[in-house]
Amino acid sequence: MDNPSMQDTSTSVRRRLVSAMSYVVPPVLALLLAGIVWETWVRVSDVPIYMVPPPSEVLKQLFWEFDFFINEGSVTLFEALVGFSIGAGVALTGAALMAHSRFLERSLLPLAILVKVTPVVAVAPLFVIWFGFGPIPKILITALITFFPVLVNGVTGFRSVDRGSLDFLRSLNASRREIFLILRVPSALPYLFSAFRVSIPLSVIGAVVGEWFSADRGLGSVIIVAHSNLDMVTLFDAIFVLAFMGVGLTALVSVAERKALFWHESSVVV
């Protein structure tokens, strides 16, 4: 921090680049290899294209129809992110209340568990009937599916505070609000980030499932349409884009986690 020389900075940049490459290169190579094997297999064994398309066709279509996939993808991404924000927001509020009151926990947690064990696929049609064909039912389904991990980890996290720090704040007559902001929120962050890492991929699932039941927009509906047309190339493209979305979102959470939890044991790389 004090005054690192220019050389130190540039070597550390280089070192970080090298370490980033060591994370990126192996999976990319593996993916490439899988693609080549797949392509060869399809070509050699003459699998019909309406069963399994060769990756070259899938990529070609993705390239030519890029705008289409970006547009449909952003519809799904929007639903996933808004749904996640609502689900996580409600869950955090609930967790903060439950962490302060065993009574609230005892009355609300069974309800939350009930919601959790109900298969989303079963309630999705209901949401369509109630909320129509716009983005709202998809957002609500996403909120529902992302809510529970955040709630449970939030309650545990807000409670998992260091006993001595809590006593110290109490000895200063700190208010509940002060204790919550100064101690409980930072202590909960490791738990919350584990929850986000579960919930973020779930949010994409929620949005897609919602679109299956009622949509003319989004990758979920692209999948349904492609399926009924036996258009395997488009179907695979939609899956690729969704997978990419999941990877990207998870990577974003990881980066945010590393920044926010620099002080936590889990962030020490051994």
């Binding site: 260091d162 001595g164 720090s165 110290f168 000895s171 200063l172 007559n173 620099f262 936590h264």
Partner: peptide, 15 residues
């Protein structure tokens, strides 16, 4: 704020 408390564990906030 008349009481200064020190415990066996430092109980500092690691962040």
């Amino acid at each position: 704020k008349e009481l200064g408390y020190v415990f066996q564990d430092p109980s500092l906030m690691p962040w």
